[in-house]
Structures are given as structure tokens and as C-alpha cells.
Design a protein around this nucleic acid. Structure first.
Lengths: 229, 229
DNA sequence: TAGTGGTCTAGACCACAGC
DNA sequence: CTGTGGTCTAGACCACTAA
């Protein structure tokens, strides 16, 4: 089979091509599974695997008793890979350092969960390219209390030590205030890109982090390809 | 089976729980398919379906002859849904309008592909909330030449009429210049969020669009959940 | 080389939503 | 109701690679 395509993969691509080329357009019905079985001379599970994959990418919707239909695109759904900054810098062959600016533990009076708050700078070859403000829930991650200026980047530590189940990332823009401008070598008022991410483990909040980048400094790219190659 | 969970779904969740809880941590080996068959008393395809799903979400990596292992997370991979602005406004029950500012056709001297360039404003209930600058490749989408102030939002038109195969979205921040500030009701220098998207169909470029939002005006959120419920 | 995943078959029963 | 998808079985052969 080397070089050959799995049957389910061939079916998937054929359908995908027909959708992309416009031979099948939004709302059209695609052949039912038994028809595809006959067309490709394979079993139903094989056909099913192909169609399910297209459902997962959002290209097809299935309704019982009615059939499978080409989905009507509502927007652009794409995957974004948000790399750990330390790993990213190191991968470029540059020297990464996380410079700690402040570290505090905040215990609410009500006896709620203690929070570790961290401010710091991500540096590449000695130049700060991002400011980071982070909160870590110590009841969910008690071991984080040992984190300090000798630990390196708290993001990398968390990624390696604490599994998360859900994350939410939000993008926004803000004007640099004096502190931020000083840290990043900008002028006051310069537009910066802020990436805020919250992370949960089940229902427990793990961490909230705001990373602020100078404009153009960070390549935040989301891609969607219908897996061509 | 109503209310009951499919077996493959149960296996998937069980494994996921073990990974999340830390019972299985990064690099650990998970049971081979035959062991899971025995554990759950089901066939191999059923087990396989569960494991494949976890591979798709990036939680598990499989290596032939070696086994399946809990993946070592390298960053945050998440899905972002970038909605069509017209659909989004309409869904909120507000009145959408695209105000055309300019429309030009640019033909390069060398005889390359002609470009339709559009500037406009996305308005909700009469208030502009985003500026849009767009290029459309007319050789790939000749029918777009008919687009004009009576056509509504070019984005919605393209989404409905032109299938795309690949897209790339980039986030950045910029300071509002005088024009932008006037259009969006901001002060000059205010930080704005820019979303730039390029779209292809095969190797042909379809469109490039820059949408610029006032800070906080747009909820650009990417989520990753291990599909809990 | 032996063990693991990758793929496939030729059936089957069931739930459920449209007709 | 009937047709469609959702799920499952109990096998099988093959490719690849780690031991």
C-alpha cells in the first residue's frame, strides 16, 4: 500500500474536491453511505470513516433520515497554534530569558483561593519583546508556590507540569502606558497586541495570563487548510 | 441506548480523564488496543475509534510497534471561529450595513491579474464598528467585478459564492490615524486590533482583507476544550 | 522478528427524524 | 412507517519499526 491512499482517505478527498470546486455547493446532498459503498466498492465503515472526518472539519452536516449535506459556511473556523514563547525563541536559536519583575501571593480575606501573581518580561538575546502578567490559582496548583526568579518562564513550567482541559484566548489592542513603553522600548501610546489566555482543569481555574507584544513583534497566525498534502 | 454513552465515547472520556487527572502523564504509555478491548469487552474497531479521536485532539501520539503515548504539550492549539461580521451583527438582532467608501479596479501594467480594491465600513445600527480594506483577485473571481455599493458586504458575498481551500489569519495592533479615527469615532492614536486574512483556492489567491476594530469592540476568542459536553 | 497500529470486511441491530 | 445515520462485531491482512 506504500504510496497508495487509504480508501477512506480517497473518498474524503474526492468529496472535499467536489465541494471546493463547486460541483457540490452549500446545501447540496451528498450520496448516502450505501451509494458510496457501491461507488468505491468498499464496506460501509470505510465510507463512514471518510464522511465522519468531513463532519469533523465542518464541511458536512448529517441529519438522520434526511441525509448528509454540504455545510453552509458561516465564517472562518481555523486552528491557531499559540506556541510557548520560550520554546519559540529557543527554536530560532536565540537565547531566551524570563526576567521577573514582581512576584506576590495574594490571599483574599474571605479565605478564598490564594493567587500567585507574576509580572515579567520575555527576552530574546537580551531584548524584551513581550510583557507578561500572570495569575496562578494556588489551590489548583499548590506546587507553583515554589516558582520564583530562578525558575525561568512560568508559562513553560505550567505547560510541562500542569495538564489543562480547557483554554480560552482573547485578542485585543491597547495603548502602551509609560511602564509598558519603558519595558518594551516603545513610545507611550504605541499600539500593542494583547493576548489573554485563561486555562481550566475541569472546573478549576489554573491560570490567567496576559501577554503584551509590540506591534509587528509577534507572528500570531491562524491557518485553515483543508489538509491538502 | 438513549441517555447511554456510546462505548467508544466512554473509552475516549475515560482515557481523557486519566490524562487530565494526572493518573497518566505526558510520555506515559496507554494500554494497547487489545488490552482496551479486553477491559471494555468490545471490538477493536470500537477501541480504535476512541483512540483515533484522542489523536485528533492532540492528546495522544501513536508510534507503530511502540504503542500509544500521552502527548507532551508544546503549546496551545485551539480553534478560533472568525464569524462573518454581517452574520454576527444580524444574529444579535441588530441592523447591519456595509458602507462603501471606495471601489477601484487596479490593473498592473505588466498585464498581471486585475485587482478589485474595496474600502468600507461595517455598521451596526448605523454605527461603524470596523473598517475594512479588501483586495479581490479578479482573475480568480471574475464575477466579483459586479460588486458595488448595492451588493452589501463583500465578505458575505465571497463567503456565499466563492469556495476557498486555505486561509491564513494574522493578528496585529496599530494606532488609529486620522481617517480611521474619524470613521470609527476614536481619537487619533487609539490602539486598534487588526485582523488580516488571506484566502486561497488551490494556488490562486482569492482575497486579502484587513479588518480594523476599535479596542474591545470585537470579541475575538479562540477556545480549546476537550469536547466535554 | 515480533508486536503494534492502520486498514478493511460483510454483515448486524437500533434510534430517530422525515415522509 | 421507512430510510438514514450511529454504532458495533469478530474476525482479517498488511506495513512498519522498535526491540
Amino acid at each position: 500500500m506504500s504510496g497508495t491512499l487509504a480508501i477512506h482517505e480517497r473518498i474524503r478527498r474526492d468529496l472535499e474536491s467536489q465541494i471546493i470546486s463547486g460541483a457540490l455547493s452549500a446545501g447540496d446532498r451528498i450520496p448516502i453511505e450505501h451509494e458510496l459503498m457501491a461507488e468505491y466498492g468498499c464496506s460501509r465503515m470505510t465510507v463512514n470513516k471518510a464522511v465522519i472526518a468531513l463532519v469533523a472539519t465542518g464541511l458536512i452536516e448529517r441529519r438522520k433520515r434526511a441525509g448528509s449535506f454540504v455545510a453552509r459556511p458561516k465564517g472562518h473556523r481555523m486552528q491557531i497554534e499559540i506556541p510557548d514563547l520560550e520554546a519559540q525563541v529557543t527554536a530560532r536559536g536565540e537565547l531566551y530569558r524570563f526576567q521577573w519583575l514582581s512576584r506576590d501571593i495574594w490571599r483574599p480575606d474571605g479565605g478564598g483561593s490564594a493567587l500567585l501573581t507574576i509580572d515579567g518580561l520575555h527576552m530574546s538575546n537580551g531584548i524584551a519583546f513581550a510583557f507578561e502578567h500572570r495569575l496562578i490559582a494556588l489551590d489548583a496548583v499548590p506546587h507553583a508556590e515554589t516558582l520564583g526568579p530562578s525558575s525561568g518562564s512560568p508559562g513553560a513550567w505550567l505547560l510541562a507540569h500542569v495538564p489543562w482541559t480547557e483554554a480560552e484566548t482573547r485578542f485585543d489592542a491597547l495603548n502602551a502606558d509609560r511602564d509598558l513603553a519603558t519595558h518594551l522600548g516603545l513610545r507611550v501610546g504605541d499600539a500593542c497586541l494583547q493576548v489573554e489566555r485563561k486555562t481550566w482543569r475541569g472546573n478549576d481555574r489554573i491560570t490567567l495570563v496576559r501577554q503584551i507584544f509590540a506591534p509587528g513583534a509577534q507572528d500570531l497566525v491562524a491557518r485553515f487548510g483543508h489538509q491538502h498534502a
